[in-house]
Amino acid sequence: MISDYRSQKLSLTLGHLYPDQLNLYGDRGNILTLQRRCQLRGIELRVVGLGVGDALAPDEYDLLFIGGGQDKEQAPVAQDLHEMKGIGMWAAIEDDMPVLAVCGGFQLLAHYYRPAEGPDMRGLGVFDAWTEHKGSQVPRCIGDIAIRWGDQTLVGFENHGGRTYLGTAQPLGRVIKGHGNNAEDHTEGAIYRNAFGTYLHGSLLPKNPHFADYLLELALQRKYNHAESENVPSFNSVATEHGSTVLELPRTSLPSLLAPLDDTLEWEAHASLLERLGLYTEAASVLRAHIDSFRLV
């Protein structure tokens, strides 16, 4: 059942940045999801925690994750990210390593975070974007959210006081219901190469198995399809372009290294959140596309 790629056992290493400091919004669910989806396919996924003071050697990892935390804990993390992990992170991202940055992590990968008062917090500047907190009288962006990602949907929960504005960075998706980056321009998240920033938690990946698989696929293709492959179209060349072509993600054009799983429950959870947001058409198309018994319809 497993698409055993040239009969070698596939393995990936996930670097989980600041697991103790940035773990406020159930970020553990994202890690558990990646682990489980690998495990079910016989892929070995090793998770390495990278705390404050640890260096990031880009060639040791295939995938990076960074979550969100309390304001108080974000400042020392921002400093460490610059001093200890900045160069490694840049190298990894320029080398097309998939990176998922949620909430606070997303803000840390943009240029800066400007609080309502006090000095700016410097970010890595991976995404050409910046975040401003407009003071306590401006309401936080809180609630369930659905966005359009390519021709599909992503669902989650957002809770952020900062408003993020995109420069040249492409958004991860368009807001269907919810606030998104800044509650003004309907953008949500940001993309640079294979790095994805987003405000969606809830956790994000369990209810969005297509996005989880997309990240794993990117990591596997990068690791195993890198040098060789004449008959396999180079994933990377397509992937680098997708920043500008958000609506046509190169998902299906590739021979997948991932065996399909039974995701009925995942998609029911996804669809039920869409319905809670009043998005019945989207919910129907999700079920039709993903639940076996409806494929025939």
């Binding site: 029911e268 669809a271 019945y280 129907a284 079920l287 319809v297």
Partner: peptide
């Protein structure tokens, strides 16, 4: 999974519609 009995609050509307059409 077989051990978990899921009792949602209400049926999904989409499920119903699709079911009827199907």
């Amino acid at each position: 999974e077989q051990k978990i009995m899921v009792v949602p609050p209400t049926p999904l509307k989409a499920l119903k519609t699709l079911h009827t059409t199907h």
